[in-house]
Simulated scan of single mutants.
Amino acid sequence: MADTTHTTPPDRGGGGGRPDLATEVFVTHRNLLFTVAYELLGSAADAEDVLQETWLRWTGVDLDTVRDQRAYLIRITTRRALDRLRALGRRKESYVGPWLPEPLLTAPDVAEDIELAEHISMAMLLVLETLLPIERAVFVLREVFDLEYEEIADAVGRTPAAVRQLAYRARSHVAARRPRGNVSAEDTRNALTAFQRAVDTGDLQHLLDILAPDVVFLGDGGGIARAALTPIVGAEAVAAVLAAGLVNLAARTPEPAHINGHPALLLHIDGRIDTVLALRLDDGLVTGLYSVRNPGKLTRLQCETILRR
Results as ranks from 00 to 15, higher is better:
Arg12Cys: 05
Gly13Cys: 04
Glu24Asn: 08
Leu32Trp: 11
Leu33Met: 11
Leu33Lys: 02
Leu40Ala: 06
Ala45His: 13
Glu48Cys: 05
Val50His: 01
Leu51Val: 13
Glu53Tyr: 04
Leu56Val: 14
Leu56Ala: 15
Asp62Ile: 04
Asp64Trp: 05
Val66Tyr: 10
Arg70Pro: 01
Tyr72Ile: 00
Ala81Gln: 10
Gly89Ile: 06
Arg90Phe: 11
Tyr95Ser: 02
Val96Gln: 09
Pro98His: 04
Trp99Arg: 09
Leu100Tyr: 07
Pro101Arg: 05
Pro101Val: 12
Ala107Pro: 05
Met122Tyr: 00
Met122Val: 12
Ala123Trp: 07
Ala123Ile: 06
Leu128Asp: 03
Glu129Phe: 01
Thr130Phe: 05
Ile134Ala: 10
Ile134Val: 15
Ala137Leu: 12
Ala137Phe: 13
Phe139Cys: 01
Val144Ala: 06
Asp146Cys: 07
Glu150Asn: 11
Ile152Ser: 14
Ile152Pro: 04
Ala153Arg: 03
Arg158Phe: 12
Arg164Thr: 06
Ala176Asp: 10
Gly181Asp: 04
Asn182Tyr: 09
Asp187His: 13
Ala191Tyr: 02
Leu192Tyr: 03
Ala198Glu: 04
Ala198Met: 14
Val199Ile: 14
Leu204Lys: 11
Gln205Arg: 15
Leu207Phe: 08
Leu207Gln: 03
Pro213Arg: 09
Val215Lys: 07
Val215Arg: 04
Asp220Glu: 12
Thr230Met: 10
Val233Phe: 08
Gly234Asn: 11
Leu242Phe: 08
Leu242Arg: 01
Ala244Met: 13
Ala244Leu: 15
Gly245Asp: 13
Val247Tyr: 00
Arg252Lys: 14
His258Tyr: 14
Gly261Lys: 13
Leu265Asn: 02
Leu265Arg: 08
Leu266Asp: 01
Asp270Pro: 00
Gly271Phe: 11
Val276Asn: 06
Val276Tyr: 07
Leu285Ser: 08
Thr287His: 10
Thr287Glu: 11
Ser291Asp: 14
Val292Ser: 09
Leu298Ser: 06
Thr305Ile: 13
Ile306Glu: 00
